[in-house]
Simulated assay, not measured.
Amino acid sequence: MAATLPPFPGTSGRRDWRTAVDAIRKLLANGDDTAQVFRIMRALNVGNAPMNYARLIATEKGGRIASQHVELAQRFSDPAFVASFAPGTVGAAYRDFLESTGYSADGLVAVSKLEPSEDDLAHPYAWMGRRIRDTHDIWHVLTGYKADESLGEACLVAFSYAQVGGLGWAFIGGAAALKSLKVTGNSLFAKAVIEGYRHGRAAKWISGEDYLELLHEPIDAARERLGIRTPRAYLKAQTELGPELASYLSTQRAAAKQAAEEPRLAA
C-alpha cells in the first residue's frame, strides 16, 4: 500500500475552477489548442503528483526507477534511441506513431511549458508529473486510441483518469463526451469514453512500468501482460461516426477538409 506523502511545497491545495472552466471552453471550441489541456491539469490535478509518486516507490521496481530519475522526453527525442527498437515491439510501434502523426516528445514538452509550471522544478513530484506527461503518446500506442482524433484523445483521457487519477482528466473527458451527444446526435462517442475509463480501471498500473524495458517488449505481449483490452466501443464509434464526427473538436481537420473540397468546387 502506498504511503501518504506531504503536498508539493508552496502549494495551496485548492483547485482553480475559474481557470479550468475558461480552459475547457476554449478546448471545446478548438480541440487542437493543446495548451488548454495543461491549464486544466494544473488547475484541477491538485495532489496528483505526490499520490502517484508514492504509488511508484511502493512498487517492486519503483524505488530503482525513481532513483535513476530518467527524463523520458530526452530519451524519446533522441533519434538513435527511437531507431533502436526491433520490429513488432512497443518501441517500433511508437516510432511508427511519431512518423505517421508528425508528433514528437519535445513538441509535447514545449506545449506544456507555455505557462509556468511546477513540472519544471527540481523535485521528485515534478519529475513524476513529467513522467506521466511524457508517456502520453506511448499510451496511445498501447491502447490503440488515435492521437489525431477527438474521439481517441477523449477515450485516452478517460483511460488516464482511471489509471493516475486527477480531476482534470475526468473534466476533459466528461465535457467532450457530453458535447458529443449534441454534436453527433447519438451516444457512440460517449459510450467509447466510458469504455476508456473502464479499461483504464481494469488494466495494470502502467505508470509503474520501466518504460526503457517496456519499449523493447513485443507489443501484443505487452498489451496482454498489462491487461489492456481491445476497445470495441471505440472502434465501433470510430467506424459509425466517420472521420468528421470522430474529430468534431478539431478545427484543423475541418480546415483540411474544406481545403480538399475547394478544388472540386472550383472545377
Rank of each mutant, 00 (worst) to 15 (best):
R201W: 03
L28W: 11
L98K: 02
E261G: 09
S250R: 08
V157H: 05
S84L: 06
E244K: 08
A190R: 09
K204A: 12
P50V: 10
G144N: 11
V183W: 03
Y161W: 14
R18K: 14
Y234I: 04
R201G: 10
Q252L: 11
I219F: 00
V193R: 01
G242C: 11
N52Y: 08
W139T: 02
G144T: 12
G152H: 06
G152E: 03
P9M: 09
V193F: 01
I40N: 02
Y211Q: 02
K257P: 00
E153V: 10
K113G: 12
V111P: 05
E153N: 10
K61A: 11
S84T: 04
L142C: 09
D210I: 06
T4K: 15
S77N: 02
D16I: 06
Y197T: 00
A110D: 15
D16F: 05
Q36A: 10
A259G: 07
L142P: 03
T251K: 15
T143Q: 01
A147H: 12
E118S: 05
E153L: 11
Q74P: 08
L72V: 06
A3I: 06
F8R: 12
A20S: 04
S247F: 07
R15Q: 14
L151R: 05
I228S: 00
V193T: 03
A23Y: 03
G62E: 02
A267K: 08
L226T: 04
T239N: 13
A3P: 01
A266T: 09
A192M: 03
E149L: 11
G63P: 02
